[in-house]
């Protein structure tokens, strides 16, 4: 709502600064796809430089890439665009390795990019579905921290589901 700039057609540009100093210049309409940025813009109003000390430049870049795609496609909303977005999302998460996926999910969650969080959590869920415990640990490089007897105890307890 700030009336500082000249006309209504020019969109305001925001500078986003990542933890490693990398900066991104993005249109306000793109950045406000993220709840956290949206809140900052509404609260502070005039501030054009936003520092994000918890997000690394690589992942902030990826989050913004997603925002840009979805902000653009939302402007001319029709059914076909929905399909395009879905297809694009599918491509976006397809080849993410679990390390990138982890950091991207953390970044999206920190920036309150709800739709992106949904997309990424679904991707993680799809990597879990139907897998055995050992396979899940292998996929996500998780080390069991159960005490020696504990795991066997849990196993016994849930045995009805395994037989």
């Amino acid at each position: 709502m700030s009336s500082s700039s000249t006309t209504t057609t020019t969109t305001r540009l925001l500078m986003l600064k990542a933890s490693d100093g990398v900066t991104f210049e993005v249109e306000e309409a793109v950045a406000t796809k993220l709840g956290a940025i949206n809140n900052m813009v509404e609260e502070e109003g005039s501030e054009d430089l936003i520092c994000l000390p918890n997000v690394n430049g690589k992942f902030l870049g990826m989050v913004l890439e997603w925002c840009k795609k979805h902000a653009n496609n939302n402007t001319n909303s029709d059914k076909g665009n929905d399909e395009v977005n879905k297809w694009w999302d599918k491509e976006f998460v397809m080849d993410l390795d679990q390390n990138t996926l982890y950091h991207l999910l953390m970044a999206a969650d920190y920036l309150s990019g709800t739709e992106l969080v949904d997309l990424l959590t679904e991707k993680v869920a799809s990597m879990i579905r139907g897998k055995k415990v050992e396979e899940i640990r292998e996929t996500f490089k998780i080390k069991s921290d159960f005490l020696p007897g504990q795991e066997e105890e849990i196993r016994k307890k849930n045995s009805w589901a395994f037989e």
């Binding site: 969650d109 959590t121 869920a125 879990i128 579905r129 415990v133 640990r137 795991e151 196993r155």
Partner: peptide
């Protein structure tokens, strides 16, 4: 909180036979 969000997309069998046995968290 993020783990819970992820698990919301799973069914009961995956919850019981899979994720509940991975680690204490």
């Amino acid at each position: 909180d993020i783990l819970v969000k992820i698990f919301m997309a799973l069914d009961i069998l995956d919850l019981v036979t899979g994720v509940s046995r991975v680690c204490s968290l």
